[in-house]
Design a protein around this nucleic acid. Sequence first.
DNA 1: CGTGTAAGGAATTCTGACACG
DNA 2: CGTGTAAGGAATTCTGACACG
Lengths: 104, 104
Amino acid sequence: MSTDKQSYKDKKVMTIGIISEITGLSQRKIRYYEERKLIFPERTKRGTRKYSFSDVETLMEIAEQIEDGVQTFEIKKEMAKKQTRDERNKMIRGQINAHFNIKK
Amino acid sequence: MSTDKQSYKDKKVMTIGIISEITGLSQRKIRYYEERKLIFPERTKRGTRKYSFSDVETLMEIAEQIEDGVQTFEIKKEMAKKQTRDERNKMIRGQINAHFNIKK
DNA sequence: CGTGTAAGGAATTCTGACACG
DNA sequence: CGTGTAAGGAATTCTGACACG
């Protein structure tokens, strides 16, 4: 269910040129954020980077923080935290569902 | 509302190489279907074609029909019909909504 | 009609490095 | 630390054409 919408958003299909155009960030910046482990594009056989719409969203968030003077190091920590929060929430939702489903 | 999912699906962001990979069609075929007015990629400033996920779906449908021996000419007519049907349905839905909203 | 291919040019992307600060 | 840039190579995309049928 909903396999499709997810796949559109998360499918890595755009080259760095288009990403640069959409986000307004230079290719240098985009590659640098990857170097700092903030984004993780896939690669084609010959090494061209491929990004998803999710990556675009992440890049926008990164850009905002950089503008506020936050260092890539800090951004990475924040993202790790958010990640943990999301996972915890997902698990709780799962338990709630299990609870009600079993009772039913 | 739902401006986002639509934009992901319809945004023209993929190059022909990726489209070829996703659909399994040769670049020659993809360009030919454009020549026959079955798909309408956008272009970058320098002329590189850009496709959306919607285009991918359309291409899959085209491929299926071609395999069944349908000519591009016929496919185009079918697509025009479908287009008209969709518009008519959309209009009817609009009227129904208007009907109930006004009464309320 | 639909599709493959060789051809030549133009534009894209990649990496490692130097620069500034 | 974050980002610009010049450098050279490799891969991509484009068009118009010839080919087969």
